[in-house]
Simulated scan of single mutants.
Amino acid sequence: MIASPKTVKTALRGALLVGAVLAVTACTAQYRKHGWIPGPDLLNEVVVGVDTRDSVAETVGEPTIDSLADESGYYYVTSRVKRFGAKEPQVVSRDLVAITFASSGVVDSVQRYTLEDGRVIPLERRVTDSSLEDKTFLRQLVGNLGNFNPGSFLQQ
């Protein structure tokens, strides 16, 4: 069965329309939000000089980042990231609420920072690379032959 020119033209228009819709949607920026910060109403409930770490966690919620080393504060962070096609993701906005504690354990200050207050600090986990990642057992064994010192066995 041979298709009529009208049917071919309609199918071609449909394919062209689908292609145009796909091209337009592929070039649309996508935004993702990560993290959470407490709103002004929750932050107003935190009383400087009165609240403790436990009362802040109960009132405001658990922090995004807790200063484990010196227990100096709670940090709540939210970021908005723009992704556009194959380009590298770009941080559009970042808000940070820092609730710091005095050495006695009570709230010392409540501060809010935005991206405009400073430079972008990447929040990511660092993982130490292993030197063994692409070496097989045989390659490690042969690679260690030059490191062998027979004198270390004879000095017993």
Rank of each mutant, 00 (worst) to 15 (best):
K6Q: 13
T7L: 15
T7H: 14
T7G: 02
T7D: 15
T10R: 12
A11C: 10
A11K: 10
L12R: 00
G14Q: 09
G14E: 10
A15G: 12
A15W: 03
A15R: 03
L16I: 10
V18L: 15
V18E: 07
V18W: 04
G19H: 05
V21Q: 02
L22I: 14
A23P: 01
A23N: 00
A23E: 00
T25N: 13
T25Q: 13
A26T: 11
A26C: 11
A26V: 02
C27T: 09
T28E: 08
T28C: 10
T28P: 00
Q30H: 14
Y31V: 05
Y31W: 05
R32A: 14
R32S: 14
R32V: 13
R32E: 15
R32C: 02
H34P: 01
G35E: 00
W36V: 11
W36Y: 14
W36E: 13
W36P: 06
W36K: 09
I37Y: 05
I37M: 10
I37L: 10
I37E: 06
I37N: 11
P38D: 09
P38W: 05
G39Q: 10
G39T: 08
P40F: 00
D41Y: 02
D41M: 07
D41C: 04
L42E: 04
L42M: 06
L42N: 06
L43V: 07
L43N: 09
V46L: 07
G49P: 10
R53S: 02
V56L: 09
A57I: 02
A57W: 04
T59P: 03
T59D: 03
V60I: 13
E62M: 08
I65N: 08
D66W: 05
S67W: 01
L68G: 14
L68H: 07
A69I: 07
D70A: 13
S72D: 08
G73F: 00
Y74W: 14
Y74I: 01
T78G: 02
S79N: 04
R80E: 15
R80M: 10
R80A: 07
K82L: 04
K82Q: 13
R83Q: 13
G85I: 02
G85M: 11
G85F: 11
A86N: 14
A86C: 01
A86G: 11
K87L: 15
E88I: 12
E88A: 15
P89R: 01
P89K: 00
Q90M: 12
Q90L: 15
V91D: 05
V91G: 03
V92C: 01
V92P: 01
R94V: 05
R94Q: 14
R94A: 06
D95M: 04
L96I: 12
L96Q: 12
A98I: 03
A98M: 03
T100I: 02
F101C: 01
S103N: 11
S103M: 09
S104Q: 09
G105D: 08
G105F: 03
G105A: 08
V106K: 13
V107M: 09
V107S: 11
D108N: 15
S109E: 10
S109M: 00
V110T: 14
V110C: 09
Q111M: 08
Q111E: 14
R112M: 09
R112T: 13
Y113S: 04
T114W: 00
L115G: 13
E116H: 04
D117L: 01
V120G: 03
I121C: 05
I121F: 06
L123M: 12
L123S: 06
L123N: 06
V127D: 05
T128Q: 15
S130M: 02
S131K: 08
L132T: 09
K135R: 09
T136P: 07
F137N: 05
